[in-house]
Computed example of a mutant assay.
Amino acid sequence: MLRLAGRDGLDRATLRDVAAEAGSSLGSVQHYFRSKDEMLRYVVRHLGERVTERILHGMCEVRGTSPVRSFLMSMATEMLPLDDRRRAERRAGRAFATRAVDVPELIEELRQGDRWLHERVTELIEQGQRDGELRPELDPVHDATALLAMIDGLGGDLLLGVRDPGDALAAIRYHLDRLGPPQQPPRGGRVPPGGRKS
């Protein structure tokens, strides 16, 4: 299914296409999925579980030695469609979101995943504030929303080919650097280029 999503977009794939890609009969696929909506729900739930596992694994590392901003950068990189696997995941997610607009039960599936991710990023920003790595005046809820919206927008740009991967990563790195405390001028009063001596 993900190979189809990466190549053609899952929104255009049929159950027959999935069966052909898997080397199975249509009847075998229909044994597990009665409709395309059921197949999409399964794919997105499966993808959500994979992303959740990667995020939780990363959060465990953050609680040990890895800085919060480094993990948020790794999380963003993992979520952006930078290779075939991530492009397939992204396209499957977009297909699900498009179909979900008209199917209430699919919308709720999407909302649950979005709420979970937003809560985890909010927690990480709060941890960064406690550790002195992020600015204390940040609003963790709003900054989590802004970061996730930025990743989502850049992901769409990458799929469309209107943004270079290097530029997308640089934009996220720039944003995360701005969340950190301002850099102190070096001793001796020398100020970095573009800065001002206080």
Rank of each mutant, 00 (worst) to 15 (best):
residue 17 D to T: 00
residue 84 D to E: 15
residue 57 H to R: 13
residue 75 M to P: 00
residue 173 R to Q: 14
residue 128 G to S: 06
residue 148 L to K: 04
residue 146 A to W: 03
residue 184 Q to T: 13
residue 71 F to V: 09
residue 71 F to G: 05
residue 56 L to Y: 08
residue 162 V to L: 04
residue 91 R to C: 10
residue 147 L to P: 02
residue 108 E to R: 14
residue 19 A to V: 01
residue 68 V to F: 06
residue 131 D to V: 07
residue 124 L to D: 04
residue 149 A to D: 07
residue 81 P to L: 07
residue 21 E to W: 04
residue 123 E to K: 07
residue 131 D to E: 15
residue 96 F to D: 00
residue 197 K to M: 14
residue 125 I to T: 02
residue 8 D to F: 12
residue 191 V to E: 08
residue 69 R to A: 15
residue 98 T to M: 13
residue 195 G to E: 14
residue 184 Q to R: 14
residue 174 Y to T: 13
residue 115 R to F: 11
residue 47 L to H: 10
residue 34 R to F: 00
residue 175 H to M: 11
residue 37 D to G: 03
residue 152 D to S: 12
residue 119 E to W: 06
residue 49 E to S: 08
residue 5 A to E: 01
residue 150 M to Q: 11
residue 35 S to C: 04
residue 118 H to F: 08
residue 131 D to Q: 13
residue 106 L to I: 09
residue 7 R to E: 15
residue 83 D to W: 03
residue 80 L to N: 03
residue 168 A to P: 10
residue 188 G to S: 09
residue 171 A to T: 15
residue 176 L to F: 08
residue 41 R to T: 15
residue 85 R to Q: 10
residue 101 V to M: 11
residue 98 T to H: 13
residue 173 R to Y: 02
residue 168 A to Q: 02
residue 89 E to C: 06
residue 183 Q to N: 03
residue 177 D to K: 10
residue 14 T to N: 00
residue 5 A to F: 01
residue 186 P to H: 14
residue 7 R to C: 03
residue 47 L to D: 07
residue 40 L to A: 04
residue 183 Q to C: 03
residue 189 G to Y: 08
residue 153 G to N: 04
residue 61 E to P: 02
residue 112 Q to I: 13
residue 120 R to A: 15
residue 51 V to T: 11
residue 14 T to Q: 02
residue 25 S to W: 00
residue 152 D to K: 06
residue 178 R to A: 15
residue 85 R to D: 12
residue 181 P to S: 05
residue 24 S to Y: 08
residue 127 Q to S: 07
residue 57 H to E: 13
residue 34 R to H: 07
residue 68 V to G: 02
